[in-house]
Design a protein around this nucleic acid. Structure first.
Lengths: 218, 218
DNA sequence: GGTACAACTAACTAGACAGTACATAGATCG
DNA sequence: CGATCTATGTACTGTCTAGTTAGTTGTACC
């Protein structure tokens, strides 16, 4: 539906047009994959035309990279709201894990984009000037929590922040990313609302039990 | 390279041709995704022509479903070799987790196919007449181990086999599936040979510590 | 040794797709 | 109130791509 006829006085607004294209492109790429997404389809779902898409983003790939960048930047901004430095270590890891859990659950399109990007060996992510160097608040916070936990003799010391981040991500990403094959094969919907608390606690237990195992005993 | 000229006497062999097409299609689909894979490209990497591909599989989608079916059937067959019923429960779960770990590490194209299938909401998997009903040896074995563990008072009783299977899969799938974005962002190769044992032990610890946490104490 | 069917090939086509040439209209500022 | 630049729209194109048409050749069996 290009050029909405119910809006006869077409206002110019570069930022709005850009943002609208990015919104539509995000869901189209997340839904269809990079190769499966259609530039014409994205343009048609916009109040503007395909020409604008090339005007602002240069190419299909340019648009895709812009979508990826915006998605990552948004998540990193959210991670920065983390304030768990006064919680005891075990409580803090659990809080962080649960924040990741909640975030991934409410941003399935981000998870899908990451999955798609992995299919393409992260080649687009790598070509982005900003993405590879983006700061990682969650991992930094995790690093400080682990330090405190190890210093207090509560946590094991043979893992680093990246390992624990990987554990948490793996659980949360799988639940969203592999939902469909899991349901088709096992007839269990991992995102069923009734199971949500179960999995949330399971993740927290998993991480905390692992970190505190056999420490101070034996 | 259709019609290899170094083989002047072209032998007819339906099974070989079929299998060769499936081999090539498996890597092409795993590498490029469903929409990104090119039928011409698959045909060109075969000793036969595109027409044969349609002769045997009807359509691009038919070929893709056949690839998926063969991949799943292969894995299920491998899972059936599991024999851990005489090991003590904790040892048995660890063995099963490590088998999944090893398997996923050595079959990245299967992991990729599953990821691709999830992008498409498992619609192809669902249309397959055999895939949704395929038996699941790993989950059955896991169920028996958990029963033994709970009965012996060693394991917690608030998880079922599917939950534990999910935990194990999540860890193993993430390591392979998200390898590229993880490396691009954190500069750590999750499949680095030097880290392999670390992650293998980490997975075993994770699952066993979780299952045995607070049981028989408190 | 002929016939019938399965296995196979080459060349083609219609439609889809990313990308573009060219024209024009709103905003901004003198 | 005109010059100029930014934003926008229409209509088009060359190429790629899944799928097909119209056959030919090997092989098993009578």
């Amino acid at each position: 539906m290009a050029a909405d006829p119910s809006d006869p006085v077409r206002q110019r607004d570069a930022e709005r047009t850009r943002a609208e294209i990015l919104d539509v492109a995000t869901s189209e790429f997340a839904e269809q994959g990079y190769a499966g997404a259609r530039v014409d389809e994205i343009a048609a779902s916009t109040r503007t035309t395909k020409r604008m898409l090339y005007y602002y983003f240069g190419s299909k790939q340019g648009l895709y990279v812009a979508v990826l960048e915006r998605a990552y930047v948004g998540i990193r901004a959210l991670e920065q709201t983390l304030a768990v430095d006064d919680l005891p270590p075990a409580r803090a890891v659990r809080a962080l894990a649960e924040l990741t859990f909640d975030h991934h659950e409410s941003h399935p399109e981000f998870i899908r984009l990451v999955g798609i990007e992995n299919i393409h060996h992260a080649e687009h992510l790598r070509t982005s000037p900003i993405l590879p160097g983006l700061a990682n608040p969650a991992v930094d916070v995790l690093g400080r929590i682990l330090e405190r936990g190890v210093a207090a003799g509560l946590f094991r010391d043979d893992v680093d922040a990246l390992d624990v981040h990987m554990m948490i991500s793996a659980f949360c990403v799988f639940r969203t990313a592999n939902r469909h094959t899991f349901q088709a094969i096992f007839e269990r919907d991992l995102l069923d609302a009734g199971r949500r608390e179960h999995y949330r606690r399971m993740l927290g237990d998993l991480v905390v039990e692992y970190l505190t195992a056999h420490v101070g005993r034996a």
